[in-house]
Amino acid sequence: MGKAGKALRQALKTYGISQNKLAVTLKVDRSVVFHWFHENRDPSAETVVQIAEALHSLNPDAAAEFIRLYVGDFLKSDEED
């Protein structure tokens, strides 16, 4: 477990977004975000997209960082070809 949680934790800390603010934006209970943040539970693939969209509405750079951390440099290598 944890790649999404690690990516989420880093993006939230870097961009000063609270777990509560993300939970409100996602319209989920803050305990759900807490479990992702602390790597107790992994979000589904569909939820990862919703997290990225919510982060984008709060701070587009945070969303980009979350995706970069979650997906890694996989996309970057495709763009360079």
Score class of each variant (00 low, 15 high):
residue 1 M to P: 00
residue 2 G to T: 09
residue 2 G to L: 03
residue 4 A to F: 08
residue 4 A to E: 12
residue 4 A to I: 06
residue 4 A to T: 07
residue 6 K to Y: 07
residue 6 K to G: 06
residue 6 K to F: 09
residue 6 K to E: 13
residue 6 K to I: 11
residue 7 A to E: 04
residue 7 A to W: 03
residue 7 A to P: 00
residue 8 L to A: 02
residue 8 L to M: 01
residue 8 L to R: 00
residue 8 L to N: 01
residue 9 R to T: 02
residue 9 R to W: 03
residue 9 R to G: 03
residue 11 A to L: 03
residue 11 A to C: 02
residue 11 A to R: 00
residue 12 L to D: 08
residue 14 T to M: 05
residue 14 T to H: 07
residue 15 Y to I: 03
residue 15 Y to A: 06
residue 15 Y to Q: 05
residue 16 G to A: 04
residue 16 G to P: 02
residue 16 G to L: 03
residue 16 G to K: 06
residue 17 I to K: 12
residue 18 S to P: 06
residue 18 S to C: 08
residue 18 S to W: 11
residue 19 Q to S: 05
residue 19 Q to V: 02
residue 19 Q to F: 03
residue 20 N to R: 15
residue 20 N to L: 15
residue 20 N to D: 15
residue 21 K to N: 13
residue 22 L to T: 09
residue 22 L to H: 10
residue 22 L to D: 10
residue 22 L to W: 09
residue 23 A to H: 09
residue 23 A to I: 10
residue 23 A to E: 10
residue 24 V to Q: 10
residue 24 V to K: 09
residue 24 V to E: 13
residue 25 T to R: 14
residue 26 L to W: 11
residue 26 L to A: 10
residue 26 L to I: 09
residue 28 V to H: 11
residue 28 V to P: 05
residue 28 V to Q: 13
residue 28 V to S: 10
residue 29 D to C: 01
residue 30 R to S: 12
residue 30 R to P: 04
residue 30 R to E: 12
residue 31 S to T: 15
residue 31 S to L: 09
residue 32 V to C: 09
residue 32 V to I: 14
residue 33 V to P: 02
residue 33 V to T: 07
residue 33 V to R: 02
residue 35 H to M: 13
residue 35 H to I: 05
residue 35 H to C: 10
residue 36 W to C: 05
residue 36 W to P: 02
residue 37 F to L: 02
residue 37 F to N: 04
residue 37 F to T: 01
residue 37 F to D: 03
residue 37 F to I: 00
residue 37 F to P: 00
residue 38 H to N: 15
residue 38 H to R: 14
residue 38 H to P: 03
residue 40 N to G: 14
residue 40 N to H: 15
residue 41 R to T: 11
residue 41 R to S: 07
residue 41 R to F: 04
residue 41 R to N: 08
residue 42 D to F: 05
residue 42 D to Y: 02
residue 44 S to P: 02
residue 44 S to W: 06
residue 45 A to Q: 14
residue 45 A to F: 12
residue 46 E to A: 15
residue 46 E to L: 12
residue 47 T to F: 12
residue 49 V to R: 08
residue 49 V to M: 05
residue 50 Q to V: 00
residue 51 I to H: 08
residue 51 I to D: 06
residue 51 I to V: 15
residue 53 E to M: 13
residue 54 A to E: 10
residue 54 A to N: 10
residue 54 A to H: 09
residue 55 L to I: 07
residue 56 H to Q: 08
residue 59 N to K: 12
residue 59 N to L: 04
residue 59 N to T: 09
residue 59 N to G: 06
residue 59 N to E: 11
residue 60 P to W: 09
residue 61 D to M: 10
residue 61 D to C: 08
residue 62 A to F: 03
residue 63 A to I: 12
residue 63 A to G: 13
residue 63 A to D: 13
residue 64 A to G: 03
residue 64 A to M: 01
residue 64 A to V: 01
residue 65 E to Y: 14
residue 65 E to G: 07
residue 66 F to H: 07
residue 67 I to H: 02
residue 68 R to F: 13
residue 68 R to C: 10
residue 68 R to Q: 14
residue 69 L to A: 11
residue 70 Y to R: 01
residue 71 V to F: 06
residue 72 G to R: 03
residue 73 D to T: 06
residue 73 D to A: 03
residue 73 D to Q: 06
residue 74 F to G: 00
residue 74 F to V: 04
residue 74 F to S: 04
residue 75 L to S: 14
residue 76 K to P: 00
residue 76 K to A: 05
residue 78 D to A: 12
residue 80 E to M: 01
residue 80 E to N: 05
residue 81 D to K: 11
residue 81 D to M: 06
